[in-house]
């Protein structure tokens, strides 16, 4: 499916990051990052393994604490946020993990119900069933409802992982390596699903990847993370229209011409 170009509202950043720094022991992973994610856009963060891409979205979701910098997510300053506010904010953010992180001991249905029943007080059984069926239909896996995660393929697990985040109707989606470890056809299907989610749920997304096909198919804007900072930002063609020796090989090795 070809990506429909979306009109992002540039006056309205849903996530705003200024001067973000994060180190592990003595190694500085993020060295002063500035970033805005605008309402309705898919922003792809590209970079090599170990450059801190996943660290970035874990900081945005409050799983990791930054060493320095100012982060505002959906109007909340992450430094001053209370535990209760953070919990409420997380319901508005969907996080799709690299390895799907489905709950092994639960069926697909229970996986999907888990966040819903704990965040929507007083929800009825009929409403739960409708919500589960709707998101399963959205990811095209209605038939897996009673299966265990161990019975699903890698691509199906990714889809169910995305469905589990969609069930709370998030405003922001964070995808951590959505196509990692999948065959090319499944990768394209996942890329299409990301675009569908953007259209259908009107989400703003950050997609962490080192897969250029994924970046090209899903990204409205690309930000290239190099040496702990965003070195190049723009459309796909703008980012790769360069002779920068750190960027060129990235393009060449991904076989996109």
């Amino acid at each position: 499916m070809k990506k429909t170009q979306t009109q992002a509202d540039h006056s309205n950043p849903v996530i705003s990051i200024r001067g973000l720094k994060k180190s592990f022991q003595d190694y500085a992973v993020l060295r002063g990052i500035d970033l805005d994610l605008y309402q309705g856009e898919n922003l792809v963060v590209l970079g090599r393994s170990g450059t801190g891409k996943s660290v970035l979205i874990k900081i945005i979701s409050g799983l990791l604490k930054p060493d320095a910098g100012e982060i505002t997510v959906l109007g909340h300053n992450m430094e001053q946020i209370t535990e209760k506010e953070l919990q409420d904010l997380r319901v508005r953010i969907g996080f799709s993990f690299q390895n799907s992180a489905l709950y092994d001991s639960m069926t697909v249905r229970k996986n999907l119900e888990f966040p819903l029943v704990r965040n929507r007080k007083g929800i009825t059984r009929a409403e739960i069933n409708t919500a589960v069926e709707t998101v399963l239909d959205a990811v095209g896996l209605s038939q897996t409802i009673n299966q265990m995660p161990s019975e699903l393929s890698g691509g199906q697990r990714k889809r169910i992982g995305i469905a589990r985040t969609l069930i709370l109707n998030p405003e922001v989606m964070l995808y951590d390596e959505p196509t990692a470890g999948l065959d090319p056809i499944t990768c394209i299907e996942i890329n299409d699903l990301i675009n569908e989610v953007q259209q259908r749920y009107n989400t703003s997304s950050i997609i962490i990847t080192h897969d250029l096909t994924c970046a090209k198919q899903t990204g409205d804007r690309i930000a290239m993370l190099l040496d702990g900072q965003f070195q190049r930002t723009g459309t796909f063609d703008e980012v790769f229209d360069t002779d920068d020796s750190r960027v060129k090989p990235f393009f060449d090795y991904n076989f996109i011409h």
């Binding site: 874990k58 979701s61 409050g62 799983l63 919990q87 409420d88 997380r90 319901v91 953010i93 996080f95 993990f97 690299q98 390895n99 992180a101 489905l102 709950y103 092994d104 888990f114 966040p115 704990r118 965040n119 992982g161 589990r164 985040t165 709370l168």
Partner: peptide, 13 residues
């Protein structure tokens, strides 16, 4: 396998 993180980011405890 990040299942605990997944619970945390979905607003559950």
């Amino acid at each position: 396998t990040e299942q605990i993180d997944a619970m945390e980011v979905s607003g559950t405890k």
